[in-house]
Design a protein around this nucleic acid. Structure first.
Lengths: 247, 247
DNA sequence: AAGTGGTCTAGACCACAAA
DNA sequence: TTGTGGTCTAGACCACTTG
């Protein structure tokens, strides 16, 4: 039954070794998709660890999406399918983290007083002014993304300058700086570049790109920063893996 | 310091109650972004639980992306930013799970013998035949997605019929049926509908849509099912929340 | 009723970071 | 050196599923 054992003198934690063993056994077909894994208590006994340690090992596989726990019933090997996938924005984060190679070019900065959907989203009256800022963010000298943002023009909050440079840029984009947001909602969509956007990004007009819309709320629960990023899928690849990849 | 206490007679686990309390205190600004949470041992003492239970409470917040643990240093409240977001395909999964309201219409099914990129992806020789299948999947009578798939035409594996209907549909798309895949890689992209695709989906030509590309491997590590889904972002919304949303 | 995962304790020791 | 998170034990009892 037990093909490999756990080396307790190793620097690798017992639960991690055990997770590796279980993952490999799933990968080799000992536990086909849909089948039930041995009970945690049985695993603990088989590998000579405590129940909590065996449980932790199974938790690793659960977090990887490889198994599903059902209380009172057992732990089952998940089937691999498209719906199990999950897309993170690490590629965006890694670009924003590389601050030495980033430049920001303000394309447009103005105060808009006419009505628009952005005022609805920000919970403002149609006549209340908002600050509109459009930026090109360049990475290693190349245009990376076009960012349009709408912010409430509020004389009681920090100055316009700091709104532009500190809150929106440092807080919203770069996670390392000062942040004033309690929460945010994001939506990812496909979009087309119009002539102006294409020129700014140095891409062909009509090119399909990602549009990443955001709405951030401050600690008073007021919607504060609405806007979106336009970015090529080549510069922000969205990849996901499901099933067993390491053995 | 401790504003709320844990009701040990409640059906809600102590760690979950404690996680709620901590989340609320972050939400109310007691622990601003970037600040350090009290040590787990301190939390355990303050709330009258064991160290393991306090640890589990903090783990809940960590999995929610609200805090970051640093060994030897402490647990810190994360700043809210775009890069923290994560997009899952639950909306796709829920449609595929609703099998009573699904219909599948085969648009095209043929064997292709001429070279093409799909053969490279599947690891085949240019002259080896592949099965091409195009399907419209309808949900509640409305076209939901267009699926194009390429599969190795292998006489030693189950018949063409079963490849078409069992493996690709049941296994790859609906996670409940039989599954023969060990792993899969997925890529999400923006795309444009051409005239034919638009007609099949009942959408305007040139509409931007999501293209979800997949490559699934069998238990012999052979690439087996390559293809993609075209689906409107309205029928498959990709939403993500960051920061504190429940208090 | 038996078996499963889920929670919890009260300790112990280790690995790492910061002063 | 001190304090932090990370691992681990050997039990206990509970909640739930299944026969």
């Amino acid at each position: 039954m037990v093909t490999k054992t756990i080396d307790k003198t190793s620097r690798m934690p017992a639960y991690a070794q055990m997770a590796d063993i279980l993952r490999a056994s799933i990968s080799q077909g000992q536990h086909p998709p849909g089948s039930r894994l041995p009970a945690e208590s049985a695993l603990a006994k088989a590998y000579g660890v405590s129940a909590m340690t065996a449980r932790q090992a199974v938790s690793v596989l659960e977090e990887e999406g490889l198994v599903r726990r059902v209380q009172g019933s057992g732990t089952y090997v998940r089937k691999v399918g498209v719906a199990a996938s999950n897309f993170g924005l690490e590629s965006l984060g890694s670009v924003f983290a590389d601050q030495d190679n980033l430049q920001v070019r303000i394309v447009k900065a103005s105060v808009k007083k006419t009505p628009g959907v952005e005022k609805e989203v920000l919970g403002l009256q149609p006549n209340q002014p908002v600050i509109v800022v459009e930026r090109i963010i360049l990475h290693q000298g190349e245009p990376f993304t076009l960012h349009i943002s709408y912010t409430n023009f509020d004389p009681t909050s920090p100055t316009v300058e700091s709104m532009l440079d500190t809150v929106v840029l440092t807080g919203l984009i770069f996670q390392e700086g000062y942040s004033n947001f309690k929460r945010g909602a994001l939506r990812l969509m496909p979009a087309l570049l119009d002539a102006r956007e294409a020129k700014l990004l140095g891409m062909p007009e009509g090119e399909p790109v990602f549009k990443l819309e955001h709405l951030f709320y401050d600690f008073d629960n007021r919607p504060t920063a609405f806007g979106w990023f336009l970015v090529s899928h080549e510069k922000m690849p969205l990849l996901s893996k499901v099933g067993v990849w390491d053995e």
